[in-house]
Structure formats: structure tokens, C-alpha cells
Simulated assay, not measured.
Amino acid sequence: MTDRPLSPADRALSDAVDRGDLDAVRAASAAGADLGARDAAGRTPLLRAALADRVAVAALLVEAGADVNAQDARLDSPWLVTGVTGSVPMMRALLPGRPDVALRNRFGGVSVIPAAERGHVEYVRAVLAETDIDVDHVNDLGWTALLEAVILGDGGLAHREVVDVLLAHGADPLLPDGDDVTARVHAERRGFREIAAALRAAEAVRADDSHPDRP
């Protein structure tokens, strides 16, 4: 990151992004605005667009060459914040920019983890189907997306669906947290009966798969 003062074109671009003004974004870019210029928090214009879910603006910036992986002072990037907002249109707008799906946020997680925590079902489904993101990535807390969906979720319909989607995409139900507690045990402790049942069934499938000769 740099402390270089913003030029008039840079400021015009930042203001245009905040307004969602596509014509002004084009004009500022044509006037030489730096697509990598950062505000006081280290956010680029594309990150600001992603945070505000200004999909058309983001698509224009990506087409112009903006970096989808540029991280701010909090280690947020345009790509990473899609997992927080759960915006599938924004996720898809950033894909042409070749996002690094292994890029980690300040908790050491990839985008599918906060999405699972927040119950963003369609995002979890889309990011697993359309990228090669690691469904079993473990963050600095020792949690996978599956564990976060249970530990930080509310056990409601959205989180039940997230668990189902994660399992359908190969999430390992036997991976424990740092205290060697699995997602199923956490679900049972929290009284999430449907989630616990789904995880119990997935564990049984894993056990069968590990013993292919078992009758």
C-alpha cells in the first residue's frame, strides 16, 4: 500500500464508484485515474464497489484491469468480501479478473467460510460449483466452512441448507476443530437435530468409503 496523495482523477473515480455512476467511472479511467489508488483504509475503487455490491461498476473496473485480489488494511479484498456479502452477481463479476480463491482474510479463511457462517446458501453453492476453492480449508481458528456453519450458525433453514451443500461438494464431516470436536458433536451440543442427523449420515458414508471391502 502507498500513501501517495490521490490525484484529481483518482478522487473523481472514487466518488463515481461511491455513486455507482458508470459514465463517471469511465471518464475518470480515461482521464488517467489509478485503478489501484487506495483510500485511508487501504481500499481500492474495486473493493469499494464490491463492499457496496455495485456489480456493474465492478465489472467495468475488472474489464479495465483492476486487481480483484488487492487487500486493504483489514486484509479484505474484492473477492474475499463477496463471501461476507453473499453476492453471487458480484462473485461472478469478479471471476474474469482471475481471483485467487486461496487468498486468506484476517482470520486465515477463504471466502466460502464467512459465507457458510452467515448462511449465504446461494453463494456457497455457486462458489463451490464455479471455482476450485477448497471446501475443507481450515482457518486460523481451526475451523472449516462446515464447522463455522454449525458453531456460528443458528441451526435454521439457511444453515441447514449450507451444511447440505457443503457435504454435497465433498466437505469432510470428520474434520474436527482444534479441540478435536467434530461438526456433528457441535450440532448435537447446540440442539441442531436436523444438522446433526445430516452430519451423522455423512460420517457413515465416509466410514463406508474408507472400508470398500466391508459387506
Rank of each mutant, 00 (worst) to 15 (best):
V163R: 07
A204L: 13
A16V: 05
D34Q: 06
D132Y: 00
A197F: 06
G109T: 07
D76R: 07
V121H: 05
L60A: 15
V121L: 03
V135H: 06
A28Q: 06
A30L: 14
R190K: 14
A59T: 01
A9N: 09
V150S: 08
A70D: 14
N105F: 04
G97L: 02
L22D: 05
D10T: 04
L6C: 04
P215I: 07
L199C: 11
I113L: 13
G36T: 06
L6S: 14
A116V: 09
R26A: 06
A56N: 00
P96S: 02
M91Y: 08
R193M: 05
R214Q: 05
R38L: 09
A9K: 05
T85I: 11
G156R: 13
G108E: 06
R92N: 04
G32M: 12
D154S: 12
G142M: 08
L152V: 09
L199H: 13
H211G: 00
V57T: 15
T131K: 01
V135W: 06
D72R: 07
V57E: 01
A30C: 04
V165S: 01
A24S: 15
T85G: 12
R98D: 11
A33D: 03
V68N: 07
P176T: 14
V84M: 08
E130I: 03
V150D: 11
A66H: 07
R106G: 09
L157A: 15
A9S: 14
D172W: 05
V88A: 12
A58N: 01
D172H: 12
H211L: 10
G178Q: 11
S210R: 14
S14A: 15
D208M: 13
S111G: 10
D134P: 02
L199Y: 10
A59M: 00
G156Y: 09
E203H: 08
R125F: 00
A102I: 01
L60T: 08
V162T: 02
E194F: 14
R54T: 00
R206H: 12
R125Q: 08
G20I: 10
D39I: 04
I151Q: 11
T2M: 01
V84K: 11
G178Y: 13
A126T: 15
A49M: 03
T131I: 03
V162N: 04
A198E: 15
D154N: 12
R214P: 01
